[in-house]
Write a protein that binds this DNA or RNA. Structure first.
Lengths: 177, 177
DNA sequence: AATAACATGTAAGCTGTTACATGATTCT
DNA sequence: AGAATCATGTAACAGCTTACATGTTATT
């Protein structure tokens, strides 16, 4: 059981998902490729933490929805009280930003403008997601006992981060003039 | 040449460093253990991007200071104009925050208070580092042509992030009451 | 006609972590 | 006496990425 396994379980508490969906949803705290997710889902199924449901679809390939079992939920619960590993962030852009004086103005500005565009796009999706939650739950979003609470605070954290990244890029770009 | 190799080169442009120092400094954009750093330094030396200088010390073990070569600097420069890979962030804490409704109040509060303490400590070190840069360079920190500029903006980014993480933790802890 | 989104899987190879190894000095 | 900091390395293993493999439908 590694962190990714718990990440998958935590997503499946909310609702049954396919591996494809999970790969997208995992973006928020543990990026992983489908080639890592599918084998791990099979392993978690084998260990009794998940049960698959085959969904036949028209106009699309069939899919497997994984449901979390009681054992899966218990396993996750137990893990939650242990102190988490330190966060890891690896960012090539920051290496380049660190060495900015080695490049010319144009390269520098492009680097930051691309970064800003990337986070502006992310922020827009994030805001749509949060608006959807607000429309669905209203004030109940702040009810810490509801399952949506955790999802709400995590996406809010990401929204703050994305907003701040854009502001920081603006600050740097203004200095580059 | 992977990202870590460029991370090492970028640090060595500023000043010659030992592997031990690099492991600490790398915290800012590419965390790596010494077991990954030492062999890579040896490889970069072999390829002519670095030259080692043996320093004999009293009261401490001897060390090797690695200097970047002209070829190393050229290699880094060339890489800078290529568009960077997407940032990766993997954070166990956020998985736990997402599943917060599965835990009791005490566990939840502890989780967030530990997180806050962790980032308060990080922030303090960061502020000390930035203050040192300000004392040394003053207004010249905003001179984009000086090598310190990149270092300054990257640590500023980290400071903002740490400040925001603490604020977000406070926001959540207040809701948990 | 080509690309994107949906959908699942395997294999090979690179990256990163943990454990093994050693050893001096300073601080508590 | 034990822990922390400085200092460098190797080996085994786990985690992650890229490439290989296949196929449909909708959009441009």
């Amino acid at each position: 059981m590694n962190s990714l396994a718990y990440a998958l379980l935590s997503m499946l508490v909310r609702k049954p998902c396919s591996g494809y969906e999970l790969a997208e949803m995992l973006e928020v705290f543990w990026q992983a490729k489908h080639s890592q997710i599918y084998p791990l889902l099979a392993k978690l199924e084998q260990e009794g933490y998940l049960t698959p449901e085959n969904i036949e679809q028209i106009g699309r390939p069939n899919k497997k929805l994984y449901h979390i079992t009681e054992e899966g939920k218990a396993k996750l619960k137990k893990w939650l009280s242990k102190s988490p590993a330190n966060p890891v962030s690896r960012d090539e852009f920051l290496i380049k930003a660190y060495s900015l004086s080695l490049t010319d103005m144009n390269t520098a500005r492009n680097l930051f403008e691309d970064r800003m565009a990337f986070y502006e796009d992310k922020l827009q999706r994030r805001e749509e997601m949060i608006e959807q939650m607000q429309a669905e739950y209203g004030d109940q979003l702040y009810n810490q006992e509801l399952p949506v609470f955790g999802r709400y605070i995590v996406h809010t954290r990401k929204k703050l981060l994305e907003t701040q990244e854009i502001q920081w890029c603006e600050w740097v770009i203004n200095m580059l003039k």
